[in-house]
Each structure stands twice: as C-alpha cells, then as structure tokens.
Simulated assay, not measured.
Amino acid sequence: MRFGELFSGPGGLSLGAHLAAREVGLKLKHLWALDYDADATATYKRNFPTAEVHTADIRKFPLKSLPQVDGMAFGFPCNDFSLVGEHKGVNGNFGPLYKYCVAAVEHSMPKWFVAENVGGIRSANSGEALETILRDFSDLGYSLTPHLFRFEDYGVGQRRHRVLIVGLRDDLGLRFEVPAPRKAPRTAKQAIEEPPIPASAPNHEYTKQSQRVIERLNALAPGENAFSNNLPEEHRLNVKGARISQIYRRLNPDQPSYTVTGSGGGGTHVYHWSEPRALTNRERARLQSFPDDYVFEGGKEAVRRQIGMAVPPAGAAEVFRALFLTLAGQRYPRVPASLGGKYAGLVAELRGEQSVPAQRTKVAS
C-alpha cells in the first residue's frame, strides 16, 4: 500500500502507520513526506530512509508532482485552532493551510486519509471551522469519521487529546469505526522507567537547572505546580491574573503525564516527580511513546519542539490498525464516534443517514 504524508513533522503519524501495518501483516510502501521545518525533515529522513522527504512551504510546492498514493496522512497546522491564543480558526494565518491537504487528496484520490488536529478545532470560529473542513473533504467523495481521541486511553503515558478525521473513499463502501481501547493505561513513571532508558540513548541530555528552580521544585510535591497553595511565598511566581497549571508542574508518577508541549519559556519543560529537574528530550519522547532508537535531529530546543508537536505513535498505531482491519473487511471491538453536539448530526447529514446520539461507554465487537 503506497503511503505519503503532508505536514509530516518528525513522523509520529507515519511511525504509527508502520507499527500497525507490521502488526496486521500489511506491506506499507512509504513514498514521500513534506514539511517546512528542516530539523523535522532531517529527523524524518533519519528514521524513514526510503521515503522521499521534501523540505518546503506547502503553499509554494507543486503538489501534483507527488506520486499517487493509496493512503495519506497529515497533521495540518493547529496554531489557529488551539485554545491558547486568538482562536482564529480558518480565518487565521495557519488555519487555511488545511486546503492544501484537500487539494492533495483531490489530486491523488487515495483510498483513505487520516487527518489530525488539536481538540480546540471543535470550537474554532464558533464551531464553523471544523464544519467547513468536514464538508470540504466530504465533497471530494469520502465517508468521514471524526473523533476526539484521548490517547491516554490507548496506551500512551500522557494525557493528550486530539481530533482525528479518518476518511474512506465512498466507492469502497466501507466505514471506519473508532477502535475501543485495548491496552492498559500507562503512568508517567511506567512510560519513563519501564524499561530504564539506556545511558547511551540519543537525545538524552540533561538541562542544567538554576539553584532557584531547584529550590522551587524541591518545595513542590508530585503533581503540584508553581501556583500551589502549599508552595512557600518566596518560591511563588509573581504573575497577576494567570494561574497556568503546567508552569513548573511536577509529574505525578502514578498518573499519565500532562500534555507535553513543544514551546514555551521557563517552567514549561515538564518536571520530574522526584528529581529537581526538567525532563530530558528522550524522557519527553518516552511520554510521547517514541522508541529509544528513534533519533531526533537538530539542537536541543529544536528536538523539544518536534517532540511536543508530534502525534504519539502508539496512539496513532491503534487508529491505523483499525483502519487497516476495516480495509481488510475484519471486525474489531469499537466505540461510537462522537465529537458531541452538532458534529454528530453533521457527519450523519454528510453520510445521508439519521443521526444517532453516541454513547461513549458502550463497546461493540
């Protein structure tokens, strides 16, 4: 099965696709990938050496020059859909870039595609952004299944909630069903320590912490942050009107990590539960479910950015596994797809069927 990826980042979606293909016995021929970030494409080339990787601005790239594929993946930019910021949606600078994914799908007409974005896309432009995106892909002739995946339910040691849209070409007569979780939850401690990270693992450099940060972290219990009521006054941050829960927040070893981010200043690097320090990039990669032999290229902050922006491959693998089983006509345990509210009705409308309210806890086989 020929495969390509747009807005590829460091390759979390693609790694998930390959893991799933290996599990179900499918041969995935990785043809190409495209991203504008040179460090990310260097990482991609390092880990997927057979793919033709393009470093380019998609707005200036001749998409019709890309070879035809059977399947496509893309995590189009989330900046304008994130709940952090102005939330401009399709009216922002990055929101309209999804249209290049629409154009690529229209050109290649693959059997399937998987699109990924942040949970905040549901409310961008008062909900109209996601509706527009769904209609644009549906108009190409695809049956769509959008769903808010909580990746901690799928074996990822991190609370990371993302909207994935799985499209299947109408002429296939198939419909993707959301897979039911089948893996035990993983805590932050399990993700980072089981098994122990080898000392020789790549991207495992420690950050030198200032004495002030060390003292602040030592005053915090696991799970607490810089705004905790238990923190002595001299270690609190002098910030008015803002109480950001992830600032200098120590991990709780007995729970999945909070969301790993790719940018941000002091206090946003994710902090160890017992040692007074920020995590290494390899530890962040562990929370994102990347294997230790997955090498990230670039400087320390560039690697941090790539890891924070990536899709957890273990979570993506569960989605691709269900997709590949669907294409093979095989059944698997599933749960109803739902984004709640009008989107359930919208998807039903686009499919020409009656909307049925989803029940998140019911599992079908």
Rank of each mutant, 00 (worst) to 15 (best):
P67M: 15
P67N: 14
P67C: 15
Q68H: 13
Q68R: 11
V69K: 03
D70Q: 11
D70A: 13
M72F: 12
G75T: 13
F76H: 07
P77W: 02
P77H: 00
C78R: 14
N79Y: 01
N79L: 06
F81A: 10
F81W: 04
F81K: 05
F81L: 10
F81M: 09
V84D: 03
H87S: 01
H87L: 06
H87D: 01
H87K: 03
K88F: 10
K88Y: 14
G89T: 07
G89P: 02
V90H: 00
V90A: 04
N91M: 04
N91L: 07
N93E: 13
N93F: 02
G95N: 12
Y98H: 09
C101S: 08
C101F: 11
A103T: 04
A103M: 01
A104E: 08
A104G: 00
A104T: 03
V105M: 04
V105T: 06
S108D: 09
S108Q: 11
P110N: 07
P110M: 06
K111H: 11
W112Q: 08
W112E: 10
F113R: 05
V114G: 05
V114S: 03
A115N: 04
N117K: 08
N117E: 13
V118M: 06
G119P: 02
G120P: 11
G120D: 11
G120Q: 11
I121H: 06
R122S: 09
S123Q: 13
A124W: 01
S126V: 00
S126E: 07
A129R: 06
L130D: 11
L130T: 08
L130I: 08
L130Q: 09
E131C: 05
T132H: 02
L134K: 03
D136V: 01
D139F: 04
D139G: 09
D139P: 01
L140T: 11
L140E: 10
G141N: 06
Y142D: 06
Y142T: 07
Y142I: 10
Y142N: 09
S143G: 03
L144N: 01
L144V: 03
L144P: 02
T145Q: 04
T145D: 09
H147A: 08
H147D: 11
H147G: 07
L148Q: 14
L148S: 15
L148H: 12
F149Q: 14
R150Q: 10
R150H: 14
F151L: 15
D153Y: 02
Y154F: 15
G155T: 13
G155P: 12
V156G: 03
G157R: 03
Q158K: 04
Q158W: 08
R160S: 00
H161F: 14
H161I: 05
H161E: 15
V163M: 10
L164A: 15
L164W: 15
L164D: 15
I165A: 09
I165C: 08
L168N: 14
R169A: 11
D170W: 10
D171W: 13
D171N: 15
L172F: 07
R175T: 07
F176V: 02
E177Q: 14
E177H: 11
E177C: 07
V178I: 12
V178N: 05
V178T: 13
P179V: 11
P179N: 15
A180N: 05
R182C: 13
R182I: 12
K183A: 05
K183G: 00
K183Q: 12
